[in-house]
Design a protein around this nucleic acid. Structure first.
Length: 665
DNA sequence: GCGATCAGAT
DNA sequence: CACATCTGATCGC
């Protein structure tokens, strides 16, 4: 839970995600996403009064966040004071100090944060340096490296400070299965249940918060079954979500809520009241998405855990894991880092101890105690107070502003110039909305983590220098993707980096060999384990009735998963709906197709889905699985408008130039 | 009556 | 399994 006070050292007259106390005097407001704990004070009378007096004060956020916010009448008074900024579009904002009349320009860039619909990070560039406020984020390893706007030319921008989501910044949370792995696990669980009969329904026990939408959309898309929700008007202008949810209770997947939904479930009733269909009682299982984490050395990584006769817990996280956080920060390598969150069971000091070594001051001299280079940039002592009063105790940091002045304009030219990535077909307007859908590129459900190399995390990742240069496995086509595309191929092989691009991409990779060197531990599948060992976790009538006692764990092996044709998913996966398609329109047609396709896939799947327990040992390692288990890229990071797929020869040329240190436009 | 804050539940 | 929200009690305005 964020304890960020709202203001950054470098730009204290901006307030982000906090709108009370000192923040009432801000010259501009920013909202990273629409979760209540980031909206403190946003509808308070005091702020409302402030707005009435200060007509030039605005709230900046992503278009999706604006839409979600204004759906609630309580925030309607913001309506003409919100400025929706396109994601990945550097924008200049002029800030006026009402008292002195002095004006200051700052360039802000919204970067996708992968936390919930509309969630963004804010990159500020101004006279006091470049700073990044991450809000809440879930970014897989290597995703920072693929954000063009974090870079200047081939290298990462000089970043003074990062205000970081440290929710899981504790080695206990070393790894959290990737979004894709979790989604696949849930998908197969849901599929195996609802294909048993039309009376078999699943209730997704989701908290009242944005962030589950990509789960809904993907389940719906894969299974051709819309998800029942209480409300959907906030998505009225987001067809890609709207299409996959419904207020019609006659569906087999529910995410509806009721204040006493537990009681309802006990009475074999869904929170929406449904209890039977055509007089036949429903057979309900509940699936509760919640965060599961695994230590560095953990072997078992069960994505689905059975918690009762007809209840399951499924791995799901809105926040980056420890290793993802370290990868992210290590890549950015700022001068300072300020945690926004103190993880439960940890302390501010602990977090700082972990993060500081990933900052610039430490790459010069990794021995913090004696500071032989004492007069060099000292490492600032963390101030982790709530940010209200005693924040700005030190002088401002030196100006290290690297961006040439001419670039500081509403839209930086490099944005378009450097967007030579593949898959350039994403819709720019929908980029943000699409952020809730997920590519289904990988068919691997899950990869077990092996006993690790024993040493303590830090080094292994930073030693290797990554690069953009080459991928052995894909000799034909240079892999520009590795840097600037979200859709890393399953083999993001490492290579050498002569430039000092940090280890981000490679970090994921470097972990892989450790993950798979022991074939015994390879368990490349979605695990559905039972917390209650006396119970079967077979998904079957018997299982649900607790009559089946043969097995503790159900595995869906990767081989089997591979056997299923997911290609149709990808087709629709990137663009489940045309952005102009009115949602209710050709609905039935599309749905019909989906269901047809699903019927096939479902049939193939159900035959293969249920496998007996603990048979990992009999499996042989599958080289195809040698991928970073954390590398999935979930929320779509939209590509630059008008991007083209570069041809191999052109790419080679580009790479050569880059290798030579030339700037490419 | 509203809001802020805290404890507790989910 | 530790996320984010809601509810209810209490206090202050």
């Amino acid at each position: 839970m964020s304890s960020f006070g709202g203001r950054m050292r470098e730009y204290p007259w901006l307030s982000i995600d906090r709108f009370d106390r000192e923040n009432l005097r801000a010259r501009a407001y920013f909202l990273s996403h629409c979760h209540k704990d980031h909206m403190k004070g946003l509808r308070a009378p005091s702020l409302k009064r402030r707005l009435e007096c200060s007509l030039k004060v605005h709230l900046y956020c992503s278009p999706v966040t604006k839409e979600l916010l204004l759906t609630s009448p309580k925030y309607k008074f913001w309506e003409n004071r919100i400025v929706a900024l396109e994601v990945e579009t550097p924008t200049q904002i002029s800030l006026l100090d009402e008292a002195s009349g002095e004006k200051e320009d700052i360039v802000v860039t919204l970067l996708p944060a992968g936390h919930c619909p509309g969630s963004v990070m804010f990159l500020f560039q101004g006279q006091n340096g470049t700073v990044l406020y991450t809000g809440d984020f879930r970014l897989a390893k290597g995703e920072a490296a693929r954000m063009e706007l974090l870079h200047s030319g081939t290298r990462v921008k000089d970043i003074q400070s990062v205000y970081l989501d440290t929710t899981f910044c504790d080695p206990r949370f070393y790894q959290i299965p990737s979004r894709e792995e979790c989604l696949n696990g849930i998908l197969e669980l849901v599929r195996s249940w609802i294909t048993l009969s039309r009376y078999h329904v699943v209730w997704l026990n989701c908290k009242a918060a944005y962030g589950y939408e990509y789960l809904f959309t993907n389940l719906s898309e894969e299974l051709g079954v819309k998800v029942h929700v209480n409300k959907l008007d906030m998505f009225k202008n987001m067809p890609e979500i709207l299409y996959h949810i419904t207020t019609d209770r006659h569906t087999q997947i529910h995410a509806c809520r009721h204040p006493r939904d537990d009681d309802y479930l006990r009475g074999n009733r869904l929170p929406c009241g449904m209890t039977s269909r055509n007089g036949t009682p429903l057979r309900i299982i509940s699936v509760k998405p919640s965060t599961m984490w695994f230590g560095e050395r953990t072997r078992k990584t069960n994505i689905i855990v059975r918690t009762g006769e007809s209840s399951y817990r499924a791995c799901f996280s809105f926040h980056s894991s420890y290793s993802e956080i370290k990868d992210f920060l290590g890549y950015i390598c700022p001068v300072n880092v300020y945690p926004n969150v103190v993880p439960v069971g940890s302390t501010a000091d602990e977090v700082v101890k972990i993060l500081k070594p990933l900052c610039k001051s430490y790459s010069i001299n990794s021995e913090p105690k004696y500071k032989p280079l004492g007069t060099l940039k000292r490492s600032r002592t963390m101030d982790l107070t709530d940010g209200s009063d005693d924040l700005f105790d030190t002088e401002l940091t030196p100006v290290r502003y690297k961006i040439p002045k001419h670039q500081v304009e509403t839209t930086l030219p490099e944005t378009k110039a450097s967007s030579e990535n593949s898959e350039g077909s994403h819709s720019e307007n929908m980029g943000n909305y699409k952020a809730t859908t997920m590519p289904m590129s990988s068919q691997v459900d899950f990869i077990d983590c092996e006993e690790s190399n024993g040493e303590d995390d830090d080094e292994e990742e930073s030693e290797k220098n990554t690069v953009w240069a080459q991928q052995e496995s894909n000799a034909d086509m240079p892999q520009w993707d590795v840097f600037f595309k979200r859709d890393i191929k399953t083999t993001d092989d490492s290579s050498e980096n002569e430039d000092h691009l940090p280890s981000s991409i490679d970090a994921g990779r470097s972990q892989s060999p450790n993950l798979f060197s022991d074939s015994d531990s390879l368990s490349d599948s979605t695990h559905i384990s039972s917390q209650n060992s006396s119970q079967s976790t077979h998904i079957s009538e018997q299982g649900s009735q607790g009559l089946d006692s043969q097995a503790d764990t159900v595995l869906i092996t990767s081989q089997q998963t591979h056997g299923v044709d997911f290609s149709f998913l990808n087709k629709g996966g990137n663009r489940p709906l045309d952005q102009n398609t009115p949602c209710p329109g050709n609905d039935s047609d599309l749905k019909g197709k989906n269901q047809e396709m699903n019927a096939e896939a479902g049939a193939a799947q159900t035959q293969n889905t249920l496998i007996e327990v603990n048979n990992e040992k009999s499996k042989t390692p599958n080289p195809e699985l040698e991928r970073d288990s954390q590398s999935s890229s979930d929320f779509e990071i939209p590509s630059t408008p008008d991007a083209e797929l570069p041809r191999p020869d052109k790419l080679h040329c580009l790479y050569k130039k880059l290798a030579a240190g030339e700037t490419i436009y």
